[in-house]
Amino acid sequence: MRCPFCGHNEDKVVDSRESREGDAIRRRRECLACGRRFTSYERLEELPILIVKKDGRREAFDPAKLMRGLTAACQKRPVPLARLEEVAGDIQARLMELPDREIPSRQLGELVMDALKGLDSVAYVRFASVYREFKDLPDFVRALEGLMGSAGAQPAPPPPPAPRTPKTAPPAAPAPPPLVKRQPAPPKTTEGPSFATPLFEGVEPEDPGVPRRRKSR
């Protein structure tokens, strides 16, 4: 580095330390020609990232605006602030790795949606409803179907087979009762005194064969 006092191009570094903000390195140099010392700062060269809007307007990428969008999407969700800062840093690093310095807003939105999909499903649907400007219910349903499809829900396992029961012979039918041969009833007859039936116990019936005579007066 050229000496600001004598214009000599050779020097040596006698001290190096970082700045308080951490965005530069302070180097203390000594000229080899005149022996005087001077200070130089080494900073990282940053090219601005421009976000191209849908209407063609261009504006500089704002990390604070990205952080506000992530915070609004994850409002009242169990997502710690440190995790949101990590996601915002990852998105900014991916933008820095792109060869083009002008990035469409659609591409930035897709990066944010991919990060929220793995972070919180409700935050993903919130951001998608604003970013994609859902007009009606079918658009919202398609977003939910895409989220459920990416989750890769596994099908429920089939129910276990029922235990096999040993085969047993059916119970035997009860044997029918034996047939009893009925004896024919004896023929009824009124002949003879043996077949007369007494009307009262101890009183013999009268003989029908002997006619009764009336007593004459």
Rank of each mutant, 00 (worst) to 15 (best):
R2P: 14
C3N: 13
F5A: 07
G7S: 05
H8L: 04
K12Y: 06
S16M: 04
R17D: 03
E21Y: 15
G22V: 07
A24D: 06
I25V: 14
R26E: 03
E30S: 08
A33P: 12
A33G: 13
G35W: 04
T39I: 03
L44M: 05
P48M: 01
I49C: 03
L50E: 06
I51G: 15
K53E: 06
D55E: 06
R58K: 11
D62G: 01
K76P: 09
R77C: 02
E86R: 09
E86L: 10
V87P: 01
M96A: 11
E97W: 06
L98D: 15
P104M: 08
R106Y: 13
L108N: 00
L111T: 00
V125Y: 02
R126L: 04
Y131S: 11
D136T: 05
L137E: 00
F140C: 00
F140T: 01
V141T: 14
V141F: 06
E145K: 12
G146E: 14
L147H: 09
G152W: 01
G152T: 01
A153L: 14
Q154T: 10
Q154H: 12
P155Y: 10
P155N: 09
P158M: 08
A162T: 10
T165V: 15
A169S: 12
R182G: 14
T189H: 08
A196G: 14
P198T: 04
P198R: 07
L199I: 11
L199V: 15
P205N: 06
E206S: 09
D207V: 11
P208C: 04
S216E: 10
